Simulated scan of single mutants.
Amino acid sequence: MTTLHVTDTVGNARADARAQTGLTSDFMPYLPASSSPYVPAGVDPATLTWAETVAPGGYTHRVIARGTHLRLDDPAGDANAHVLLFNADEPWERLNVADTVKIPWQAYLGAGHPLLSGDGRALATIVADTSGRHDALFGTSTDAANLARFGDARPEGPAPSGRALFLKAAAKHGLAPRDLPPSISFFQGVRVGPDGAIEWLGSAGPGTSVTLVAELPLIVLIANVMHPADPAPGYRSGPLRVHAWRGSPTLPGSPRFDASPESRRAYLNTLDYAEARA
């Protein structure tokens, strides 16, 4: 009969764990963020607060401060960053896609576009965009749709749905399925024709990026999954790079602040709320 010694078992486990020190993956957060090998041009690495490469079919999440700049990069041309935003102080305030489209009178996302909550405040603003291929109409993929199309929708499977990944990310912030509204997505575009037909634009190609600025402290959830309107016969997804750094929100005097009467009201509501809480 073999006798197992607990101290030997624990010691071996510790040695095995420590042997993994220094191992890296292509898809992981960079710690510290300043160690990222992909720091965006013009950004001081010392100001980075988040740096990560998200795997195809993967997800990530983070709480970021007001004024943080959040840049998403599509290095291979197949990323599709489905994004949800919540007020980190009061997460029942969340992204409202209908208001995000209605307030700027524009259904297609691009530079200068505020991302609105249902409380009439700007949660974030798109401040730079080299892709121009984004979507505020379809939301993300569901388990039912992926099961019907690919035969699988599990978060750890070959064809994860965006909804399944959002549920995992949301749970880490105390959010439940009922807290998840429709999302927006970046890097795969659609257009609606005069007859209502959907035109699939797909990706603008590798090497494009989009940058947001947080107008309030935010919970950010990102699912990097295939767009539900993508006609590709197989499940298609590529790596997504994420970098965030300290900065300033949209303030009076910025062209974005006074881009329209509706935008000005949204930014005034945001400023009023932020200053009262500060």
Rank of each mutant, 00 (worst) to 15 (best):
M1E: 07
P206G: 15
A46C: 04
A153V: 11
P104E: 03
V39Y: 04
G110W: 04
P56L: 12
L218E: 04
G77K: 10
G42I: 08
R264A: 12
N12L: 13
R264F: 01
T60G: 08
D195N: 15
F27I: 03
L167C: 08
D99R: 15
Y235L: 08
A204C: 02
R133Y: 10
Q188D: 09
P255L: 00
A65S: 09
A170F: 10
P45M: 12
I64M: 13
A124T: 04
D73R: 12
G67L: 00
G132L: 09
P252F: 01
P160F: 01
G157Y: 08
L115M: 14
G42E: 12
N224Q: 11
R256H: 10
A145R: 10
G77S: 07
T100A: 06
P158C: 12
F86H: 10
D230N: 15
L31W: 07
T142N: 02
D73W: 11
M226F: 01
D44T: 02
L123S: 02
I219T: 14
A81D: 07
V190H: 12
P228I: 02
G67K: 09
A171N: 05
P217V: 04
G110T: 15
E262I: 00
K102H: 09
V192D: 00
A214M: 02
A266L: 11
A148L: 12
V192W: 04
S131A: 12
V10M: 10
V97M: 13
A65P: 05
G151L: 00
D16L: 15
N80A: 07
L109F: 12
N87A: 12
Q20T: 13
A98G: 03
D74S: 13
A164G: 12
I184K: 09
G139A: 03
D16Q: 14
P158E: 02
V6T: 15
H134Q: 10
K168G: 03
L115T: 02
P160V: 05
G205I: 14
P75A: 10
L137D: 01
A276K: 11
G11A: 06
Y235M: 06
P155S: 06
A111K: 14
M1K: 07
G157E: 08
L251E: 15
F166N: 06
D129G: 04
F186C: 07
D258A: 13
I64F: 04
T140R: 00
E156P: 06
M226G: 00
S237D: 09
P75E: 13
V63Q: 15
T47N: 13
S248I: 01
V63G: 00
P37V: 12
